[in-house]
Each structure stands twice: as C-alpha cells, then as structure tokens.
Amino acid sequence: MSDNRTAKELLSVKHLKQYFPIKGGIFGRTVNVVKAVDDISFSVNEGETVSLVGESGCGKSTTGRAILRLDEPTSGEVMFEGTNLLALSKSQMNRKRKDLQMIFQDPYASLNPRKTAVQVLEEAMEIQNIVPKKERRSRAIELLETVGLSAYQADRYPHEFSGGQRQRIGIARALSVNPKLIISDEAVSALDVSIQAQVLNLMKSLQKEFKLTYLFISHDLGVVRHISDRIIVMYLGTIVEIADKQSLFRRPQHPYTRALLSAIPTLDPDRKKERILLKGDVPSPLNPPSGCRFHTRCMYATDRCKSEAPVLREAGMGGGHQAACHYIEEIAEGALYSRRE
C-alpha cells in the first residue's frame, strides 16, 4: 500500500459535472436535465487504488466514463499528469488514451464476438501503435499468459471462453497499451464470487507488476474493502465521504455511509449489528432535493440541511478523511438524536 501524503497526484478531478439533457417536443428542445454527476472533485495518487462506491444511479459509472470522455462532461476539469483531458482535441485525446484504460462490467458484451482473443489484443496495440507489427502476436500471447490464459487459447473466439476468462481478456486488452491508470467499472460484478476473488487477486498482482493506478467503481462493499486504499462514497451525483479504507470502515462519518456500511452482512452470527434502514427511495436526479441531497432520507436532517448544501470537510478526523455533512461532530458525539427514534 502506498503512502498517500508523499505520493504523486496522477489524476485530479475538479468540479466535474455531467448533465444529460432530456429532449422533448417536435423541435427537440431540452425540456429537463438529469444531473447524473453534480460538481464532484477528488484526486487519485500514483499507484493507489481508489474506489467509487454508491448505489446504482449515484453517478459512479458516469464519473468513470466522463474521465475517459466516453461521454463528454458538461463542465469541470480532469487533470491527468498535469494536462486537462477535457481541453484536448479529439486526436490529442485519442493519443492520450493509451495512458488511461477501462475494464468493463459485462464480460459478455465487452468483447467483439467476431474477434479472437489475440485479434482483440493486436488491434488494441495497432490503434495505439505500441508494438511493431511483427511482434504484436507474440506480445499478445505474452499478455494472455500474464492474465492467466494459455497460448493455445489465443485463437479462440469469445464464446469459447467462460465469463471469468473473458474478463481476463478484457484486462489484457486494457494492459496491452501500457496504461498508467485503469478505470474498472464494476469489473467483477457480473462474475461468480469465487471467480471474483481470482480476478481481484489478478488485478492486485498486476498492479504491483506494472505499477498501475486503479479507479475502482463498484457497489459491492466487500469487494471494495478487499482492493482499495481509499474510498469515495457517492450519493445522487455528489460525493458524501472520502476516506482511506481503515478510517471509513471503522469510523464512517456521514449518515449515508453509516447506513451503507450497516448493510454489509457479517460472518459472525453472534455479533449483533445495528442495521440502519433508510426510508424511501433515492430521489430522482431529474429534480434532486435542495440543500443536502440526502436530507429526504437522513434521520438527523434539520431545516439547515434542507436549505444549505454541505461541503466536504475534514472536521478533525485527520488523514484526509472528509465528509459532506453539517453535523459530523454532533453525530459523532451523539449530541444529535435521530428524529425517527
């Protein structure tokens, strides 16, 4: 694990906003916008694994796609090694893409069914012109072996592989251009638990071998706990808490994070856990609540939460642990009682 304070900043996202317009009417006017990601800022240091967690629809995948400009963000900055990716032209960005790669969620949709494993990797190298043409095949086979497949499987089509094996090909494809940052979008969610562990451990060992930095997007807290150095918790398009792993799991500060963590099942049947049940559904990002976006479901919410949006602050927790709540101290001291009790 890396030391966060001395490490170099690799990726820094500043005030990123991703609004999706909803078109309507005969002339395709914008009738409304979905604020999928609304003004988030965070940074990722070289060599670390940062996880983005949150329930579905909270904007974590959108964030990943916006960083890679798979969808063009509405506004903000994505600084990668000092360059603002959002300011690059399309061709400059395409050249830059060899430094940032993505591993996708669905191993059944992330490989072209008409390309063999080796063709997938060769094409990736061809696009970025990484390896001379003659050496591409041997390099591709080498990569397949790196991710735990064998040379004799090189000429097989995706349908001849299992889900876990396909995900390994997806990882090999991401590696083939020698990236610095890999964004993993729910990379193991579609796999069996036993295969999940294999793929996660592979990703961990690859990280050491190739000095990779991961931005790991997941809704699975168990997986996140296994792989992350730092964790960013998102709710409805905003960041509610950022902390390193130990700090977050031991002392969650934001009421939402507390509720989220209380949902992790324990293996110890004797241990009594307080389960915090949130009421209601996640509000629509079409018309997010005013003030703190969590106030509609928060058991501590006051009038201040309805009008004033909280900002991320350390509030004496130290170690870069930040939460976006007006009442971090009061909740920690137990001075604020839940209005639902």
């Binding site: 960005m93 395409n94 893409r97 949709a109």
Partner: peptide
C-alpha cells in the same frame, strides 16, 4: 451501446475502424 464499442473508443479507435 455494447461495451466493446466503448472499449474501442477508450482505446482511441477511429470512427471508421
């Protein structure tokens, strides 16, 4: 909409490709 198209885009593939 399939992810392999996104994968090609994130590799920097041209529209033609």
């Amino acid at each position: 909409r399939l992810e392999y198209i996104d994968a090609m885009r994130s590799l920097g593939a041209s529209d033609r490709r």
